[in-house]
Nucleic acid binder design. Structure first.
Length: 290
DNA sequence: CGCGCCTCCTGTGTGC
DNA sequence: TGCACACAGGAGGCGC
């Protein structure tokens, strides 16, 4: 569930609570929580001890914490990851994976992850931009994101528009929830072929992506359950503002038609059957238009 | 190389 | 009541 608005909410919380502090000790409670780190979790803990966290950065759904060594801690929340700032006296969470204690005491930083799709890594010399995420496109809230470049790349793809929105190498930060919400705002069905979108239509879609992400950031992200919370353990409120996601059968806020749910990549897509008509499937040769 | 599907995980909800 | 299974889904990796 954590998409750009949720990760940005976590980033802001971390910037407030851990930037400028020096790591004292690191405990790894679950080896799978440490990713891309061949020397193992012991070494992971050793290289972090004594390092000062300079900042908290984000690209798309990835976070990284530049260190005074020039390395960085790279973090991805996956499906259920949480970064919590807790007093040392707080009881351990059932799915506590990693704990960072600081030289100045409370609060400590905990990585908690029920489904272990997320993880932490040390990115060597990754303070500027970890090489592990060099393939991740800039996200639409990045000042250097190129709208024209995105539109050109989108229209050059031979795929469906929702698949393209979820492709983090094209545009990062968008997941299933905000893809559905942006497509609804743009009145586009997710199965629309990207190479048949006009330039203005693609630009409009991008504007709606940015709009829905910005609104969700303003409400602290979307929480359906306790799996997404900010660094203080609090839920976001954007679920109340969702127009289609998770609202099968409820009236479309624009036209009143019941929202439909369709299978998509072993999960679900939500849309309005009237506002977002499904495109006619492409039949290269069978060509009768009806 | 581009595209699309599979897999990794576990708690929750549902149907028999 | 209890078991079985679908479902949630980000992203790396692999097959075509």
């Amino acid at each position: 569930m954590p998409e750009l608005p949720e990760v940005e909410t976590v980033r802001a919380g971390l910037a407030r609570w851990v930037a400028g502090r020096t790591i004292a000790t690191v405990e790894v409670h679950h080896p799978r929580a440490i990713r891309r780190h061949l020397p193992g979790s012991m070494h992971f803990a050793a290289v972090l001890a004594g390092r000062k966290i300079l900042d908290v950065c984000r690209r798309g759904k990835y976070l990284w914490l530049p260190l005074d060594s020039g390395d960085a801690i790279l973090a991805h929340l996956g499906m259920s990851g949480q970064l919590l700032c807790q007093p040392a006296s707080a009881p351990d969470e059932p799915h506590l994976r990693v704990r960072l204690r600081f030289t100045d005491g409370d609060p400590e930083l905990r990585f908690v992850d029920q489904r272990t799709f997320g993880g932490l890594a040390v990115s060597e010399a990754g303070a500027d931009l970890p090489h592990e995420i060099a393939h991740i496109a800039r996200d639409p809230m990045d000042p250097l994101f190129s709208d024209a470049g995105f539109v050109a790349a989108l229209r050059a793809r031979h795929t469906e528009v929702k698949r393209a929105l979820l492709d983090q190498s094209l545009i990062s930060g968008v997941g299933n929830i905000y893809a559905d919400e942006a497509l609804w705002r743009a009145r586009l069905h997710g199965a629309r072929p990207t190479d048949r979108l006009t330039g203005p239509a693609a630009l409009r879609l991008l504007a709606y992506v940015r709009e829905v992400l910005a609104e969700a950031i303003g409400q602290g992200g979307t929480s359906f359950d306790a799996l997404y919370v900010n660094v203080n353990g609090e839920s976001g409120y954007f679920d109340r503002s969702l127009s289609v996601y998770g609202r099968e059968g409820e009236p479309c806020p624009r036209c009143g038609n019941p929202i439909r749910r369709e299978p998509f990549m072993n999960r679900s897509s939500y849309s309005c059957p009237r506002c977002q008509p499904r495109p006619r499937t492409r039949r290269p040769q069978a060509a009768s238009a009806g």
